[in-house]
Structures are given as structure tokens and as C-alpha cells.
């Protein structure tokens, strides 16, 4: 068995070597396709992470009118208490708001003096919502209608935008993967076709002396699968370096905590598995598809 296996493997490597330019070209195309796939996975992961972070900040701020009456204020306080989804509520007076503002700015004292004289910052309620229940827009619209409320600030718009964006990214990503898998299939098929062509005579002789179809197919399928597997390994390595050096750098340069990049280790399975599957399936099916014709002798 050992001797037969070594003949078989030698044949496969010889064939790849003989056909090395084409094998290299298909490796190149496959790796490129995989990198595009991987990048779309990475983008989608990062967008989703951002969306999740924003959604988890289930906070709204109700700014109060300066002329709010005590009755209106009590009314509002009661409504807040009644809303079971609100886990925390802090009242910020105009003075506290100013204090906070000054602390955040740490700079020109002179400017603050004039602000202190005429405090334009509104008083507010800062509310935190239960994380498990994402829909806070109902509460927002209730509070919005109440007397004494100037305006409400909350992240819904941003959440919706990021949500839509990530939906688009996921959709585009999936189609990209499908299209690129088909492109890869075509490439592998052509590579194997050329490998087959250079060994047309051998295959013909094999058929006449009574080699079984699977015996004839095996080296070509292995050749396709090998190209696919090597491509996925190469693509994975490049993707890793690319992410560490480039993408995470770009994301980090935004500096904002919100957009800090998802670590590669969290995504590697979702990159490696599609790569390996693409390599295996595309390599195997591509070669089988191209060899079928040659077996009709």
C-alpha cells in the first residue's frame, strides 16, 4: 500500500508542478476571492459590534424647559417611576449641568464666568433602560408629548442607521461570497481542465486498460482540493496580517471607544471555516466537473 500511495502522491505533485503556472494563477485568484470574503466577514463583524454597543447604551436624556412648573415636574417624575423598563433615573439641575460642562471643558476660566451669570444649560432627567428590551422609542414618544419637556436626545437614529448599514453589509457580504465561490469554481475547473488536457493520453490509456473512474479521478480531485486548501491557508495568513496591520489600525485611528476593532481571535473561526470550506468544495467539485467529460470513453 505504501508504495502505491507514494506513486499516487508523486503523480499529483508532478502534475501540479507540470501545471505550476496555472496552479499558481488559480491559487492567486482563489486567495483574492477568499480575502474579499474574509474582509466582508470582518467588516460585518465590526459593524455589528458597533451596532450592539450603541444599542446597549440604552440611555435617553430628557431636557427640561427653563419655565417648567413644579406640577409639570412632579407629573414627569411620576411617569418615569411608572415606566418599569427604566432602571435608573437621575435628575440633573441647571447648576449641575453647568458644573459638569465646566469639568469637561477644563480651559478658559473667563468663558465660564459669563456662562455662570447666564446659565443656558437646561436641567434634565437622565434615564437608563433595561437592556433586554430594545424598543425604547415608545417611552420616548410618551415623554416627548409631556408639558415642560424641551426635547429628548437618544440614539435611536444612530441605532437605526447602523442597523440598516449592517443589514446591507451582511446582504452584500453573502452575495459577494456566493459570487466569488462561483468565480473560484470556474477558475479551479479551468486549471484542472488544463491538467487533464496535458494528461489526456494517459487518461485515454487508463480507460482502455480498465482503470475505474474513481481511480482516474482521484489524483485530479486531490490536485483541486490541494490547491483549494493551500489557498485557504495562504488567504487566512494574509487576512490575519492585513487585519492586524491595516484594518485594526484604521479603526483604531478613529480613537473612539465605540469603534474599537473586534479582535481577530473572535472572528478567526468565521474566517477560517468559510475559507477551508470554499477551498475544499470548490477544489473538489471544480475538478470533478471538469473531469466528467474526459471519462466518457
Amino acid at each position: 500500500m505504501g508504495e502505491r500511495l507514494s506513486y499516487f502522491l508523486k503523480d499529483v505533485f508532478k502534475s501540479i508542478w507540470r501545471n505550476r503556472m496555472m496552479a499558481l494563477a488559480s491559487l492567486f485568484v482563489l486567495v483574492s476571492c477568499m480575502l474579499i470574503m474574509g474582509t466582508s466577514v470582518i467588516i460585518s463583524f465590526n459593524i455589528n459590534a458597533v451596532a450592539e454597543k450603541i444599542e446597549n447604551q440604552n440611555e435617553i436624556v430628557i431636557f427640561l424647559r427653563d419655565d417648567i412648573t413644579q406640577a409639570e415636574l412632579t407629573d414627569l417624575e411620576r411617569s418615569i417611576e411608572r415606566d418599569s423598563r427604566i432602571t435608573k433615573s437621575i435628575y440633573f439641575s441647571k447648576e449641575q449641568a453647568l458644573q459638569e460642562y465646566i469639568e469637561q471643558q477644563d480651559g478658559d476660566e473667563y468663558l465660564y464666568e459669563s456662562l455662570k451669570e447666564d446659565n443656558v444649560l437646561p436641567a434634565s432627567f437622565r434615564l437608563s433602560f433595561d437592556n433586554s428590551d430594545g424598543k425604547i422609542s415608545d417611552s420616548v414618544s410618551t415623554f416627548e408629548k409631556m408639558a415642560g419637556v424641551e426635547k429628548i436626545r437618544f440614539n435611536k437614529d444612530l441605532v437605526d442607521k447602523v442597523d440598516n448599514f449592517s443589514k446591507i453589509i451582511n446582504f452584500v457580504g453573502i452575495w459577494l461570497i456566493i459570487v466569488l465561490a462561483i468565480v473560484s469554481l470556474f477558475i479551479i475547473q479551468n486549471t484542472i481542465k488544463i491538467a487533464l488536457f496535458t494528461r489526456k493520453k494517459e487518461i485515454n490509456i487508463m480507460k482502455y486498460v480498465g482503470a475505474t473512474d474513481s481511480f482516474i479521478q482521484a489524483p485530479f480531485v486531490l490536485e483541486g482540493v490541494l490547491i483549494g486548501i493551500v489557498s485557504s491557508a495562504v488567504a487566512f495568513g494574509i487576512q490575519y496580517i492585513l487585519y492586524q496591520k491595516v484594518i485594526s489600525g484604521i479603526l483604531d485611528s478613529f480613537g473612539i471607544d465605540l469603534i474599537s476593532a473586534v479582535p481577530f481571535s473572535e472572528m478567526q473561526l468565521y474566517i477560517l471555516v468559510p475559507f477551508a470550506l470554499t477551498g475544499l468544495i470548490v477544489g473538489g467539485i471544480g475538478s470533478l466537473m471538469s473531469i466528467r467529460k474526459y471519462l466518457q470513453v
Partner: peptide, 11 residues
């Protein structure tokens, strides 16, 4: 030898 090998003859 090729003709023997491809039908699975032993070395």
C-alpha cells in the same frame, strides 16, 4: 507498468 498500476496491481 502503468497499465498494471492503474488497475490496482500490487508493486
Amino acid at each position: 507498468a502503468f497499465a498494471m498500476r492503474v488497475i490496482g496491481a500490487s508493486p
